[in-house]
Amino acid sequence: MIYTITVNPSIDYVVQLPQMTLGSVNRLAHTAKLPGGKGINVSQILNDLDQPNKALGFIGGFTGTFISDALKAKGLDCHFTPIADDTRINVKIHAEEETELNGAGPDITAKEIEAFYTELANLTPNDVVVMSGSLAPSLPDSFYYDIIQKVEAAGANFVIDTTGEALKKTLPSHPLVVKPNNHELADYYHTTFNSQADIIAAGQRMLAEGAQHVLISMAGDGGLLITKDAVYFSPAPKGQVINSVGAGDSMIGGFVGTFAKTHDAVESFRYGLACGSATAFSEDIATRAKIDEILPLINIEKLAH
Rank of each mutant, 00 (worst) to 15 (best):
S268I: 11
D85N: 15
I40S: 02
T227N: 07
K72Q: 14
I291Q: 06
V42H: 07
I108M: 08
E100Q: 09
K168D: 10
E114H: 05
A55F: 04
A197R: 08
S10T: 08
H79S: 03
V214G: 06
D161G: 06
A211G: 07
L171G: 12
I113Y: 00
L22C: 11
M1R: 10
V177M: 05
G253Y: 01
G36L: 02
F193K: 02
K54H: 12
I11M: 14
D292Y: 11
Q19Y: 14
P237W: 03
S217V: 05
V15M: 14
T6A: 02
L135H: 03
I226K: 01
P175H: 09
F281Q: 06
M206Y: 06
G64E: 09
L185Y: 00
V266W: 02
N53M: 13
V214R: 01
V130Q: 04
V159N: 02
I252T: 01
D69P: 06
A274Y: 01
D264T: 05
G203K: 08
G164F: 05
F259D: 00
Y145P: 06
A265P: 14
P106I: 12
N182I: 09
F116D: 04
T170Q: 09
G276S: 05
N243T: 06
T262N: 10
L176Q: 00
K228N: 15
A104H: 10
N26D: 03
A211F: 06
G23K: 11
A73L: 13
I40C: 02
A265W: 10
L135W: 09
E98D: 13
S10C: 14
N181C: 11
N41S: 09
S142L: 08
I199D: 03
L76W: 11
E114R: 12
S217N: 03
Y188T: 03
E209F: 04
G203A: 08
L120F: 05
I89K: 06
L46E: 04
P296N: 11
P35S: 04
G248P: 00
